[in-house]
């Protein structure tokens, strides 16, 4: 049996929850930056926070789960790019610098 796709929400509570989540993740980012400055795991934690915040906006404000596949993929790709690039630069910074030297 074909599953019935979800439909746009008429509830503000989901949006409110996403907004609270964004505020909480912003606070978490500040705490991490304050207490883990220079720690080797900070970029990984920040990358996770950046991805999750982008996902919250895309999923709950833009409703990417209901959107045309092209739109959903554009959002997915953009949201993952910065966290991925941050990790690549953290772990392979010297190699990236070598590859991008003229």
């Amino acid at each position: 049996m074909k599953a019935k796709p979800a439909l746009p929400s008429l509830s503000l509570s989901t949006l409110f929850g996403a907004w609270l989540g964004l505020l909480g993740l912003t606070a978490l980012g500040l705490v991490l930056a304050r207490w883990s400055a220079g720690a080797s795991g900070l970029p990984l934690a920040v990358a996770a926070v950046v991805w999750f915040k982008g996902w919250l906006v895309a999923r709950h404000f833009i409703e990417s789960n209901l959107a045309h596949p092209f739109i959903a993929w554009v959002l997915r790709i953009f949201i993952v790019c910065v966290p991925a690039a941050l990790l690549i630069t953290t772990w392979f910074g010297p190699q990236l610098a070598r590859w991008t030297s003229l």
Binding site: L22, A33, V46, G54, A58
Partner: peptide
Amino acid sequence: HATDIIWLALFPLFYLL
């Protein structure tokens, strides 16, 4: 919302890391 997503990526890169 898209402009918001971009800012959410810019913020830690310039202010936190």
